[in-house]
């Protein structure tokens, strides 16, 4: 018994998966070779984050919690590099730690080296570990360390060591970065760059210091709620947020020497193509469904 010929609606609803995958690979590859500038209107949350970092003073250090690794490199690496460029340009010292992933401190060090190399390339003094920044390492319990930071920062980090200028592991409070820090309010801000929900843990437990975040797209809507209620002073979400930061830096004469357009500008045009493909795929599926329904009726 021969099968009934498939209708247009059925065909539209059952395009083969390999074809979709190949189309996606092609459409996310070809635009990467074209350098296209896309006009941008930064979101208010990104503007607030940018202004918070821009107005930081070099007198007080900041605390950075970095919980991202290469698994979210597409968004988090660009966010982290943008942040490092701004902080290094303004000579703001910082202390980095991680509460989300054991790989995160090493990843942070690697990307600080990348931004340092940019500074050397355009004739600026690179940031020196120990004098300008310290990496406090990884804490396996985000809840415990966030509580400790709020209650007694000195004791929370007292056992952490980083290599001093001679290469000897030394308690980080002997570093010029933290020598005047006794409690968390001695930091001018706490910034969190994360690809996971360690952002929620920080919001629940960190007090007495302005908090701002750079999160991935997945965490965006959930974290937006805290920005709307004023618990966060700024929020950068995903690739769009990263591009907001880069476009603001490009227009800012203060950062004219820095490499402002980087990962965000490279990926953003391709994101357009990918999102159009997603929208088209959904439309084609629904058109197929309506055609099939009408035919059945």
């Amino acid at each position: 018994m021969s099968q009934a010929p498939r209708s247009l609606g059925d065909k539209l609803q059952s395009l083969p998966k390999p074809a979709l995958y190949i189309v996606l690979i092609i459409l996310t590859s070809i635009p990467l070779f074209a350098k296209v500038s896309i006009p941008n209107r930064p979101a208010k949350a990104s503007i607030d984050f940018y202004n918070l970092v821009k107005n930081l003073s070099a007198d007080k250090p900041i605390l950075i919690q970095t919980d991202w690794t290469t698994s979210t490199r597409g968004e988090s690496a660009g966010e982290f590099k943008s942040l490092m460029r701004m902080l290094m340009h303004k000579h703001v010292k910082f202390c980095i730690y991680s509460a989300g992933d054991p790989q995160a401190p090493q990843v942070a060090r690697d990307y600080i080296d990348i931004v340092n190399q940019e500074r050397k390339d355009h004739g600026d003094t690179p940031y020196v570990g120990w004098s300008d920044y310290v990496v406090a390492g990884y804490f396996p319990s985000a809840e415990a360390i966030s509580n400790s930071i709020t209650n007694n920062f000195r004791t929370a980090f007292q056992d952490k060591k980083d290599k001093n200028l001679q290469g000897t592991p030394t308690p980080i409070f002997e570093s010029p970065v933290l020598s005047n820090v006794n409690k968390v309010s001695d930091f001018s801000a706490m910034l969190i760059v994360t690809g996971s929900n360690t952002s929620n843990v920080a919001i629940e437990r960190i007090k007495h210091v302005p908090l701002a975040m750079m999160v991935t797209g997945v965490m965006g809507p959930e974290t937006q709620v805290y920005y709307d209620s004023g618990q966060l002073k700024g929020l950068v979400t995903g690739l769009k947020g990263l591009y907001d930061m880069e476009t603001q830096m490009v227009k800012d004469p203060d950062f004219s020497k820095e490499k402002s357009l980087d990962q965000g500008a490279a990926y953003y045009p391709t994101l357009h193509i990918a999102l159009v493909l997603m929208i088209l795929a959904v439309i084609i599926g629904n058109v197929g469904m309506f055609i099939s329904k009408r035919r059945a009726a």
Binding site: L24, I25, T28, S29, L32, S71, T72, R73, G74, E75, T216, G217, V218, G220, P221, T237, G238, L239, K240, Y267, T270, L271, A274, L275, M278
Partner: peptide, 14 residues
């Protein structure tokens, strides 16, 4: 937002 993030990770790999 999730679609943006996942596509960005793929673009990064490409």
């Amino acid at each position: 937002s999730t679609v943006m993030m996942r596509f960005t990770l793929l673009i990064d790999r490409m």
